[in-house]
Amino acid sequence: MGFHTFDPESADKLEDDSRYRYLSHEELVAALALDADESETVADFGSGTGFYTDDVVPFAGEVRAVDLQEEMHELYREKGVPENVSLVTADVGDLPFGDGELDAAFSTMTFHEFAGSGGGDGQSGAEVEIARVLREGGRFVVGDWSANGNGERGPPVAERYDRDEAVELLEAAGFEVVRADERPETFFVVAER
């Protein structure tokens, strides 16, 4: 879809705890299935101000907060970036990571901004690029606004995917979907490389 990115002028909305109503930090961390030794490298695609990034930090060795907008990183810096977080300004379709470099990745309410578009080869979607940078067996967790929602919050419904469309994109990119839920306003998908 990728119609637009989140407006940094409205970034205060990204720090609202009511976001946990759509995806709790416990559910996100559990779905990532990180090792107990906290040594894994995880990426947050569309990290914004680091709201969900900060929730994953205690469970990972390194977290890479990836956002297309440097303004979002500036806001994250103002809030305070944890020591084990690296800020990466990049398009999810063209990531500056090596093949299999990440152990896990996630996207919270941003999948609609990059899925189905981009790709370092100019042909494939960003989900193919995500598969490239994840190690075999690595998980990609997606919580996003659903096209089946009413559109009262989040982006316009026309800019969203539903669960089945997201699953189709991920499977076409080589992921095996291990969980896919359609919720009243969002969907939640857990996929393995």
Rank of each mutant, 00 (worst) to 15 (best):
R193H: 05
A33L: 06
G122I: 05
L169F: 13
D144I: 01
G118T: 03
D162R: 14
A104N: 08
G2S: 14
H25V: 07
G149K: 12
G125F: 09
N150L: 05
V157A: 02
E129F: 11
A105L: 06
D121N: 02
V141C: 14
L34M: 12
G174M: 12
N148L: 15
F188S: 01
M1S: 13
E26W: 04
E171T: 15
P184G: 06
S124P: 00
R77W: 05
D91F: 03
Y22C: 00
V190R: 09
S86M: 08
T89H: 01
R179P: 05
S39V: 03
F3H: 15
L34V: 05
S107R: 04
M109Q: 00
P184A: 04
G93M: 01
G80Q: 06
D162I: 14
G122P: 04
D103P: 11
G154Q: 08
A11F: 11
R163Q: 15
H4G: 02
S107P: 04
E171M: 13
F3M: 06
F59E: 03
P82S: 12
D67M: 02
E127N: 14
E113H: 14
D144L: 07
F51T: 04
S39G: 08
N148C: 09
V190A: 13
P8C: 03
L34R: 05
A31Y: 13
R77H: 07
V29I: 10
R163N: 09
A11D: 11
F45T: 02
H4Y: 06
L87Q: 11
E129D: 12
T5M: 08
G122H: 07
F114H: 05
E70M: 06
P155R: 03
D162L: 15
R139C: 02
V66H: 02
E113R: 10
F140W: 14
Q123A: 09
A33M: 08
V177S: 10
S24N: 07
S18L: 04
L68Y: 14
D91Q: 06
V178T: 15
V189T: 12
G174A: 09
V56Y: 09
W145C: 04
G137T: 13
E83Q: 13
D7V: 01
D35S: 13
T5D: 05
V56T: 06
V189S: 12
R139E: 01
M1T: 10
A33P: 03
F114D: 07
E15F: 06
L34F: 08
A65G: 10
E152C: 00
V66W: 00
T5S: 08
N150T: 15
E185N: 10
Q123S: 08
F45P: 02
G100M: 00
A11M: 13
F188L: 10
L169A: 12
E40R: 14
V88C: 09
T89W: 03
E168V: 04
E168Y: 11
S117N: 09
V142A: 11
A30Q: 12
G149H: 12
F188E: 00
D99T: 07
L32P: 06
D12K: 02
F111C: 00
L170C: 12
Y20K: 03
L134T: 03
G120H: 01
S47V: 02
L68P: 00
E113T: 14
L14E: 07
V42L: 05
F106L: 05
V88L: 04
